[in-house]
């Protein structure tokens, strides 16, 4: 399976030539601009949220939104059927199809870090940089599986494409991504725990400060991703 999936990734890398401008903008230019722009108005105590929040935002867009949109389009054009006929599972297709964006996303995560430390917003060393990589990979998986489940459930691809954007942005700004979880009013807590970005953002922020509980949040994120992978399978995409 690994051989087949890596061939698929190679194919998507070739295909991404055509989408380079959009990928480059959303994964690199846009998040850097957010961090740079808001660095002048954010207080020192919250600088970490600006950085970890933007990395989370960028993970949400490049995994959840991009997987649902491209998978929906590929299903519409019969390519998902073709892939299934070759033996590539839908989840493998989802992960491979987000790989290029995610590769950019991971590069982007580190560029954001570099810019943030250049601006004096945070300080970070190799160990934290490695913890962050773990969180980025797991966050990407979680977001991709949410996108896969959405694709399985919503068969109308115009609707799917719109909702993928709404969820990608919604989960980044209507969740404790740019601010602490403790700021959420009690009665909204259950709702917040339904959002994948809650887990992803905690894992990313805590790994950046080498707080060991980042492992726990990553486990939650992984579990969340597996639940949505199972849901996708139940809804016909496995």
């Amino acid at each position: 399976m690994l051989k087949e999936l890596s061939s698929l990734i190679e194919m998507f890398l070739k295909e991404s030539r055509a989408w380079f401008i959009a990928i480059f903008f959303y994964a690199i230019v846009f998040p850097l601009a957010i961090v740079f722009g808001f660095s002048f108005v954010v207080s020192k105590n919250f600088a970490i949220f600006l950085v970890s929040g933007t990395i989370t935002f960028q993970v949400a867009i490049t995994s959840l939104t991009s997987v649902a949109q491209s998978l929906g389009m590929d299903r519409d054009r019969g390519r998902l059927s073709f892939m299934i006929s070759t033996g590539i599972p839908a989840w493998g297709y989802a992960i491979a199809s987000s790989f290029v964006n995610n590769l950019m996303g991971i590069v982007s995560g580190y560029m954001i870090l570099a810019v943030a430390s250049f601006l004096g917003l945070i300080t970070i060393n190799y160990m934290e940089g490695f913890f962050l990589l773990v969180s980025l990979i797991i966050g990407t998986y979680t977001g991709s599986m949410f996108g896969l489940a959405m694709t399985a459930k919503i068969r109308n691809w115009r609707l799917l494409s719109q909702l993928a954007l709404v969820f990608g942005f919604g989960f980044s700004f209507f969740a404790p991504v740019y601010f602490p979880l403790s700021y959420i009013p009690k009665y909204l807590i259950p709702l917040v725990y339904l959002e994948p970005t809650t887990y992803i953002s905690q894992a990313i922020r805590l790994s950046m400060v080498a707080n060991p509980s980042f492992i726990l949040w990553n486990l939650y994120a992984l579990l969340y991703g597996m639940v949505f992978m199972a849901l996708a399978s139940k809804w016909g995409l496995s």
């Binding site: 061939s7 194919m11 295909e15 019969g78 059927s81 073709f82 033996g87």
Partner: peptide, 25 residues
């Protein structure tokens, strides 16, 4: 299999579409 109303990948060449169909198998 040629699924109904399917299309090859627009942004790949004819060669690449067929070549990767072999590789992913």
């Amino acid at each position: 299999v040629v699924p109904q109303e399917s299309e090859p990948y627009d942004d790949l060449s004819v060669f690449e579409n067929i070549y990767y169909a072999a590789r992913i198998r």
